[in-house]
Simulated assay, not measured.
Amino acid sequence: MRILHTEWSDGFGGQERRILAEMKGMRARGHDIWLATREGAQLRVAAETAGIPTLILPLRGAADLASAARLARELRRLRIDVVNTHSGVDSWVGGIAARWARSPVLLRTRHLNNPLRRGWTNFVHYLPDRIVACGEAVRARLVEECGFPAAQVVSIPTGIDFAGFRPARDRATVRAGLGFGEDDELLLMVGVLRGVKRHLLALDALQRLADARPRLQLILAGDGPMRDELGARADALGLSGRVHFLGHRDDVPDLLGAADALLLSSRSEGVPQAVTQALGLGLPVVATRVGGVPELIRDEDTGLLVPPEDAEAMAAALERVFADPDWARNLGERGRAHVHAHFSLDAMLDATERLCDDLLHHSARTAR
C-alpha cells in the first residue's frame, strides 16, 4: 500500500510518537509511507531522520484551500492509496484533499478523548471512510455521545514495540546522571506540559506527601507551554528542590528504568503511551480514571486508578506505592503481563493492515 499521513501539530507527545511508530512499522512491512506536515513540526525531523519522505505544507488553518489543492496534486502524483489524518487542521485540509484527489481510502485517527461534533459546519467528520479511535473508551464516546455511526468508528489501541523499548543504561547510572542516589524515591511523569495533563494537580499531591516522604522527588520529562507556570507553582508550594524539569528527552526507557513509579494526572486521555510503556517495563503506575486508561489499568490489579481532579486520592495512592515496594513491584509485574498481551506494536500494525486492506478491496469493488 501507498500511505500518506498528515499532521499539523508542532509538538512531539504521545500522538506524534504513535504516528512515527506506525509509519516506521508499516514501512518495515513493505508499504510505501509519506508524511505531510508543517516545516516546524518536530515529527517532520523525526520522520526524515527515519528516512520517511515528507511534504511540507503551510497548513494555516481549516480553510487553507491552497494547502488542500497542493496536497491533492501530490496525492494524485504519488498515487496514494490511503490518507490518514490526525489533528484538527490537517484533518480538514487532508480530508478535503483526499476527496478532491479521489484517494481510495481516507482515515481519521482520533487520539484524544474530547468530543467531536458532527453537523453541516463540521462536514469534515463525514468525509473519512473510518475513524480510528485509539482505544475502546474513545470509540464509545464518539458513537454514544457524539452520534458517529458505530460502523464508521473502529478501535485500534496504540501499540508499543516492547522488544525495542528497553533501557540502554542501568538504573544506578541514570540516577547518578540526574543527581540522585538509590535512596531517593523517584516519581516520573512523561508528557507535554499542557493544561489537560494536569501537572498542577500532581504538584498539589506531591505537596501533601512532602513531610511524610522527604526523599520523594518528582521528575517531569517533557516540555510545553506550562513550563513557567509549573515552575512558579512548585516554588509557591515549597517544592522547588523536589520538582525537576528535564525538558524533551529521547531516553524515556532509561528514565522509566530509573524511576520507582509513574504518575498520570490527566483530566482527559485516549490510551496514553506513557502508561503503556511504563507498564511494559513493569513499573508501578498511579493514574486518573479517564478515557482509555482503565483499558490499561485494572485498579488494584495492574495499577492504581484515582478520580480525576482529586489530589488527596492521588497522594494516598502514591503513598501506598512508596510505602510497600514489594507490593508495588507485584502490581507492576501484573501490569507488564497485561500490556504485553494486548497492547503490542505488532497488534496495532496487524489491525491497521487489515483495516486498510479491507477498505481498499471494498473501494476496488465499488469502482467496478
Score class of each variant (00 low, 15 high):
residue 6 T to Q: 00
residue 8 W to S: 09
residue 11 G to W: 07
residue 12 F to K: 05
residue 14 G to N: 03
residue 14 G to M: 01
residue 22 E to L: 07
residue 24 K to H: 01
residue 30 G to Q: 02
residue 36 A to R: 00
residue 38 R to M: 11
residue 38 R to E: 00
residue 39 E to G: 07
residue 41 A to E: 00
residue 41 A to M: 06
residue 42 Q to D: 01
residue 48 E to L: 11
residue 51 G to C: 05
residue 51 G to N: 03
residue 51 G to D: 04
residue 54 T to H: 01
residue 56 I to W: 03
residue 56 I to T: 14
residue 56 I to C: 08
residue 57 L to N: 02
residue 64 D to N: 02
residue 66 A to K: 08
residue 69 A to M: 08
residue 69 A to N: 03
residue 69 A to G: 03
residue 72 A to P: 01
residue 72 A to R: 01
residue 76 R to L: 03
residue 76 R to P: 03
residue 76 R to Q: 08
residue 78 L to V: 13
residue 84 N to S: 12
residue 88 G to I: 15
residue 90 D to W: 13
residue 90 D to E: 05
residue 92 W to F: 15
residue 102 R to K: 13
residue 104 P to D: 04
residue 105 V to C: 04
residue 112 L to S: 12
residue 115 P to V: 15
residue 117 R to G: 04
residue 119 G to Q: 06
residue 120 W to F: 14
residue 121 T to Q: 07
residue 125 H to V: 12
residue 134 C to N: 04
residue 134 C to T: 15
residue 135 G to P: 02
residue 140 A to Y: 09
residue 141 R to F: 05
residue 142 L to C: 11
residue 143 V to K: 03
residue 143 V to T: 10
residue 148 F to R: 05
residue 151 A to V: 14
residue 152 Q to P: 03
residue 159 G to S: 10
residue 160 I to K: 02
residue 163 A to E: 08
residue 169 R to H: 10
residue 171 R to L: 10
residue 177 G to K: 05
residue 183 D to G: 12
residue 183 D to M: 08
residue 186 L to G: 01
residue 197 K to V: 12
residue 202 A to N: 03
residue 208 R to D: 00
residue 210 A to S: 12
residue 219 I to T: 04
residue 223 D to P: 11
residue 227 R to A: 10
residue 229 E to D: 13
residue 230 L to Y: 06
residue 230 L to A: 05
residue 237 L to Q: 06
residue 240 S to Y: 13
residue 244 H to Y: 10
residue 246 L to Q: 09
residue 247 G to A: 08
residue 251 D to G: 11
residue 272 P to Y: 02
residue 277 Q to T: 10
residue 278 A to K: 00
residue 278 A to I: 11
residue 282 G to W: 08
residue 292 G to R: 01
residue 293 V to P: 01
residue 302 T to M: 02
residue 306 V to I: 13
residue 309 E to C: 09
residue 312 E to N: 05
residue 312 E to L: 14
residue 316 A to E: 12
residue 318 L to M: 14
residue 321 V to K: 00
residue 322 F to L: 14
residue 325 P to D: 05
residue 328 A to D: 00
residue 330 N to Y: 05
residue 332 G to E: 03
residue 334 R to Y: 10
residue 347 A to R: 11
residue 348 M to V: 09
residue 349 L to G: 02
residue 350 D to C: 07
residue 351 A to Y: 12
residue 353 E to N: 05
residue 354 R to T: 14
residue 357 D to P: 01
residue 357 D to M: 02
residue 365 R to L: 09
residue 367 A to P: 03
